[in-house]
């Protein structure tokens, strides 16, 4: 019996002794956004897998840090590591994300990471 061949180890070979996401360092095009920028999360269609939470889609957030370069999970889950891009840590106001979040706690926030192709300038 024969099984299809595929390279189960290419990620291991790339990342061993270096780490992931460190192994993608330097592969992304120049970052389009900087710390302090206000951005909106695009509600892009995703096939079967995404790590961009539903609750962030359409919301506006502020970039707090450029965290690392990596292929987006939406590609990597299909073993496609060609499109390395910058990942950003973003801070969202709770009131922006949820209806009726109490005014008394207007300062409460969520921080989470989103890859660049989901972001558009506000």
């Amino acid at each position: 019996m024969s099984k299809p061949h595929y390279d189960r180890e290419h990620h291991v070979k790339k990342a061993t002794g270096i780490g992931d996401p460190q192994c993608f360092k330097g592969e992304a095009p120049a970052a389009r956004f900087k710390v302090g920028d206000k951005v909106r999360i695009k509600d892009l269609p995703d096939l079967f897998y995404t790590r961009t939470q539903g609750y962030t889609r359409g919301a506006e957030g502020t970039i707090s840090r450029l965290v690392y370069e990596s292929p987006p999970a939406e590609d990597e889950s299909w073993d496609n590591t060609e499109n390395v891009e910058w990942f950003y840590s973003l801070v969202f106001d709770m009131q922006e994300l949820w209806p009726n979040y109490p005014e008394a706690y207007a300062g409460d926030t969520v921080e989470t990471e989103i890859p660049e192709h989901y972001l558009e300038a506000v």
């Binding site: 061949h5 595929y6 390279d7 189960r8």
Partner: peptide
């Protein structure tokens, strides 16, 4: 697309 790792073709053989 990702190429098949020649090491694995060799291993399989």
């Amino acid at each position: 697309m990702t190429d098949i790792n020649p090491d694995f073709i060799e291993l399989d053989k």
